[in-house]
């Protein structure tokens, strides 16, 4: 087991001013990720939070080098343990992926190959990266399935994805991702496609495994409830940029960005009196104006002031970063959205 002390080590992953631009013929470029910087220390769990289309998944695909080559421009730097992943030749990157860097995707129903037995889909990582023989890999795979809580693993290894439930499939995918004890695991909405009862189990499993192996984790989610129980640091993204970053407790106790406040207010709480309506964030990111003309959240923001446009605010602050000229005050009640 590796030592787990983020403070004593340098960062494992360094994302520096990352931008991803999708280009389509006959249409304007879409800047899905716009100058995102963050770092992950060994063993740390980092949350990347935001609603659909905010660029969090694209960020993870860019880190893994899984974006299509054509029609996509990736700029900035992604450095993993001192290696620049963006300029790494494809065959070198293939050696890192699956061994040191792993990812678990959102939908376990479609992320497993339907015509290949579960066993092969776990062992193929082991034979590829750890040079195990087929027999050794099968034993190891059975062990992995047991560790992720799949009963009767040797039978399951012979089965096909359609014979497993959604939760079981996600466990199998997690087993494959953790097979080579990666140093960084990206979990991209790992529980979104699952039943609520299974969601908690999978999160708990991820937490345990990550803690046991000292793997750093980037947890991508739109669900602040998921972040609350797991992450050390949280980055809130909106319109392709990070709008607020803070240690988890601080973010929940004192959200400063109106968007973060809105996200928190839209989560149902057990201690709320009955009959109180959830607070939605008005509008949708469809209305987002580009950051080029000021703050992208301004049209939906309850705290909007004149200074929000035409110059987009910078991300300021070291420990608690904030991209807002008129943040929530500590006495301000959790958001009241502007009527539209």
């Amino acid at each position: 087991m590796r030592p787990v002390n983020p403070a004593s080590r340098g960062s494992l992953l360094e994302v520096e001013d990352l931008s991803v631009v999708f280009r389509q013929r006959g249409r304007a470029d879409v800047r899905a990720v716009d100058g995102v910087s963050f770092s992950v220390s060994p063993g740390e769990t980092v949350g990347l939070v935001g609603e659909s289309g905010c660029g969090k998944s694209v960020t993870s695909l860019a880190i893994m080098g899984l974006l299509p080559k054509r029609g996509v421009r990736v700029e900035g730097g992604v450095s993993f343990d001192g290696t620049d992943l963006l300029s790494l030749p494809p065959d070198k990157l293939r050696l890192l992926r699956g061994r040191d860097l792993a990812i678990v995707f959102q939908d376990p129903m479609t992320s497993l190959n339907p015509v290949v037995p579960i066993g092969t889909q776990v062992t193929e990582v082991l034979t590829r990266h750890r040079g195990l023989s087929n027999g050794e890999a099968r034993e190891e795979a059975a062990d992995l399935l047991r560790r992720v809580g799949i009963p009767d693993p040797s039978r399951r290894l012979r089965e096909y994805p359609h014979q497993l439930s959604g939760g079981m499939r996600q466990r199998a995918l997690i087993a494959a991702a953790l097979a080579c004890r990666p140093r960084l695991l990206i979990a991209d909405e790992p529980t979104t496609a699952l039943d609520v009862t299974i969601q908690a189990q999978i999160l708990e499993l991820l937490k345990t495994l990550v803690a046991e192996s000292g793997t750093a984790l980037i947890l991508i989610t739109h669900d602040l409830g998921v972040v609350a129980g797991t992450c050390d640091t949280v980055h809130v993204m909106y319109g392709g940029r990070i709008v607020e970053r803070a240690p988890r407790h601080e973010l929940f106790a004192e959200p400063r960005h109106p968007y973060t406040g809105g996200l928190l207010a839209s989560v149902p709480r057990l201690d709320q009196p009955r009959g109180v309506r959830l607070q939605p964030i008005e509008g949708s990111p469809r209305d987002v104006i580009p950051w080029a003309r000021g703050c992208a959240f301004a049209p939906r923001c309850p705290n909007r002031v004149e200074e929000c446009t035409p110059v987009a605010p910078e991300l300021l602050g070291d420990r608690h970063g904030l991209r807002c000229v008129n943040p929530l005050r500590s006495d301000q009640p959790a958001t009241k959205a502007v009527p539209r």
């Binding site: 893994m64 899984l66 990157l93 293939r94 050696l95 890192l96 992926r97 699956g98 061994r99 792993a102 990812i103 995707f105 939908d107 479609t110 992320s111 497993l112 190959n113 339907p114 015509v115 290949v116 092969t120 193929e124 990582v125 590829r128 990266h129 995918l173 494959a176």
Partner: peptide, 29 residues
Amino acid sequence: HEDYVRTAEAKGLRPATIRGRHVLRNALL
């Protein structure tokens, strides 16, 4: 464009493995 091909890529498998086991085996049905 299937997710499982992306999964296979994410595992860092050899291109030949991805082609044979994950792409062609499904595409030939």
